[in-house]
């Protein structure tokens, strides 16, 4: 969901020109307001997570992470992400190829529909699968006949995860591939490359950073999703609990240190995600075309 904003090195140009330089007091006030708000709303919660997690010492922390239910929650979270992310990756690349490289009717509608899961409340994302696969749902009785469980079981969790992370990779790639145009692909085809060779050798290397960016964001959301998964999970300890659901259970049982311990793992994941994201932004800002070099004479 984050805009792919690159680094902003150029505050300099505003600070050195008299017409765009703010009065010292204004500057101090805005900095104080902005950074104060930032510290209160973003930094403090982050600090609290780690502080509360370690409040009862490392031993309790470690024990909370290694007890069987926590481990099984970690395993399930990894499993759900390991299925959802690759599927959405294939989808994202395919959708971006179709949308960015061709003109066709209904393209704008398709792009909007791909974004749809972002505007649906996570709770509703869970609900729709209950309506389709639940005991009273469309396929409920049929599935029950074959003894297949989707809702209140792992498949439901995976489905809900796929839904909420559905647009991430596609929406990173579509604008990127649109901006890059099709000339390089056309050049590859004229030179005799097949469709697959063109994609693999020309398109993919050009979109790799955007792709990684999308994967990272998709993964963070997949591992952290709470609302949608909560609806379809059934909260069976050691069976259908993901990490965020495990945090909820521990918290509701007043095992605060344990809840924050598991939460701190998720917070680390978030920090890791942001670090990779910043790295990619830095990398792509660096790699961006430095423009045509000055002409050197022939010969």
């Amino acid at each position: 969901m984050a805009g792919a904003t690159s680094t902003f090195p150029a505050s300099h140009r505003f600070e050195t020109r008299s017409a765009t330089r703010d009065h010292g007091l204004v500057r101090a006030l805005l900095l104080a307001l902005g950074l104060g708000f930032f510290a209160l709303f973003l930094i403090l919660p982050l600090v609290v997570v780690f502080a509360e997690a370690l409040r009862k010492g490392w031993e309790t922390y470690w024990a909370a992470l290694t007890e069987p239910d926590a481990l099984s929650a970690i395993r399930l979270t990894l499993l759900a992400a390991a299925i959802a992310v690759p599927l959405n990756l294939v989808f994202g690349v395919s959708a971006a190829w179709a949308i960015a490289k061709y003109q066709f009717r209904g393209k704008a509608l398709l792009t909007t529909l791909i974004d749809l899961p972002f505007s649906v409340s996570p709770v509703i994302a869970g609900l729709i699968y209950v309506l389709v696969f639940g005991a009273q749902g469309w396929f409920g009785p049929l599935l029950e006949g074959y003894d297949v469980r989707i809702i209140f079981a792992v498949p439901g969790i995976v489905l809900a995860t796929i839904f909420v992370t559905f647009p991430f990779i596609a929406r990173e790639l579509i604008p990127l591939m649109e901006a890059q145009g099709s000339e390089e692909e056309e050049a590859a085809l004229v030179l005799g490359a097949s469709g697959f060779q063109t994609f693999w050798r020309v398109t993919l290397p050009n979109i790799k950073w955007g792709l990684l960016y999308g994967v990272i964001l998709c993964n963070a959301r997949a591992m952290g999703e709470f609302g949608a998964v909560s609806v379809v999970s059934g909260h069976i300890r050691g069976m259908t609990n993901t990490m965020p659901l495990h945090v909820e259970i521990l918290y509701n049982e007043y095992q605060f240190a344990a809840a924050f311990a598991v939460a701190s793992l998720l917070a680390l994941l978030a920090l890791f995600t942001l670090a990779v994201k910043s790295f990619i932004e830095w990398k792509s800002a660096q790699k961006s075309d430095p423009g045509i070099r000055p002409e050197e004479s022939l010969t």
Partner: peptide, 11 residues
Amino acid sequence: FVFQHYALFRH
């Protein structure tokens, strides 16, 4: 085919 903007593979 030589493209107007060359279409060299940038990577």
